[in-house]
Design a protein around this nucleic acid. Structure first.
Lengths: 238, 238
DNA sequence: GCAAAAGTGTTGTCAATACACCCATGA
DNA sequence: TCATGGGTGTATTGACAACACTTTTGC
């Protein structure tokens, strides 16, 4: 029991006498496919029994000497080759029998990435449309539902959506992204008015002509300006 | 290792070979003091080292054969004598060194109760104004801050506030509660208009004269009506 | 009769919605 | 020249905020 770091030896019976549990972190990875205009989730083939070979979120057990958030970042890096990604805790799932393999409590994190980032291990991973998900192992379908809900709630009040787009993006792309997140159509004129009035987007002179002959201007989210506005009491809302 | 319930013995190395961690649940207990018109939190004297005797949230380790939410309810029942309370998961706290006694990850829950409910063990527990909290052990102050924030967010969209009031309450009491939750003054005429227009409160003929000579009408939250409205797409918002 | 809290309506302002046409360009 | 997606402005509506006086009753 080498994790005994405290010198309160008498009452450490309190800690020693208690039952330890396997703790896992599972990650819901969202991506936005600009071409297909679809919000997607990255799923992996589970490697271990029970349910080996079935679709699953990516996850791992938390090490004894590892922060929870560090574990989440490690999973994304080691298993998907992702560094420096947006990552936020969702919820902890703790039913006794949620994993038939053993008692495991799992903390779900969700991350937002640009879908065209290079991923490693892609032979065992695949993007799925959020509206067309296969059955997943354990309670992972529930986690995905909860993550989608949280993403919707979050996108209203925080500029998290930009994590799903490349640095430069067009307003039609941004509109389509938000329509996918909210799963409902939005009026394009009102959407433009609102987002531009916030003064958070910097217009580059360049156009993206990949999806029209006229081409659409490329914009960039100005994070510095956002942080300044926040300090002054500004409230983002979309 | 008697928790081996699976028959996938080969790959259970995956589970057996991994490191187990102590898992705790800590509860933030909110109450509303109608007389003082203050939102309060119930704190306890910590019984074990390190930090024995200091103010703390109430908590306990999760047993191997116990759902997370069951553990939270057990804590409230065994340590505070509370049954059938509103309880919701907050967040999981998982820094390696958050507890000097051992590596412990803790899932925080918050609960809303009527402050005049009888509590057991009150010799070691005490209500504190949320605006005047003592230093707490470990990261419990952080938990309380997060819980307050979540309560605010939650109270906007869900009728959770009623859990803090007795079955029958007056509109001035409800107003004062919301002012405490949001920590800002609200216009009483607009507040009445809004809450009454939702058609969720049932007016009893009776008055509460404890705080004025004229007396204020007692109302009751109609949960059945609320559930019906929700099914029809109604959105609560205060 | 007065102090103290409960209850009640109207108006102005701003933000969200709904809606239809012209523009630029490549093929 | 035409088909395609990009870009723009206005009128209406509804929600929220601001605001002051009357009522009831115990003392």
């Amino acid at each position: 029991m080498k994790e005994a770091k405290s010198d309160h030896s008498l009452t450490n019976i309190y800690y020693y006498g208690s039952e330890k549990i396997l703790v896992a972190v599972d990650c819901i990875i969202f991506g936005f496919d600009i071409n297909e205009e679809k919000l997607k989730i990255l799923l992996f083939k589970r490697l271990v029994e029970p349910f080996a070979g079935q679709w699953s979120l990516v996850g791992s057990f938390v090490h004894k000497d590892e922060d929870l958030s560090v574990a989440a970042h490690r999973i994304l890096k080691e298993l998907a080759g992702l560094k420096n990604v947006f990552l936020e805790q969702l919820t902890c799932y703790g039913k006794v029998n949620r994993d038939p393999g053993s008692r495991v409590i799992s903390i779900a994190y969700y991350s937002l990435i640009q879908i065209n980032r290079k991923l490693k291990n892609l032979h065992e991973a695949q993007w799925f449309d959020v509206k067309d998900m296969p059955p997943l192992v354990l309670d992972h379908n529930e986690m995905v539902r909860d993550a989608q809900e949280q993403l919707q709630q979050n996108a209203i009040r925080k500029p998290v959506g930009f994590n799903l787009l490349p640095e430069y993006f067009t307003l039609p792309q941004l509109l389509k992204l938000y329509q996918e997140i909210y799963q409902k159509p939005l009026d394009d004129r009102n959407f433009r008015k609102k987002i531009l009035s916030m003064d958070l987007l910097v217009k580059s002179g360049k156009k993206d002509k990949s999806s029209s002959k006229k081409g659409a201007f490329l914009y960039k989210f100005d994070k510095g300006r956002y942080n300044n506005l926040i300090k002054k009491g500004f409230l983002f809302e979309l």
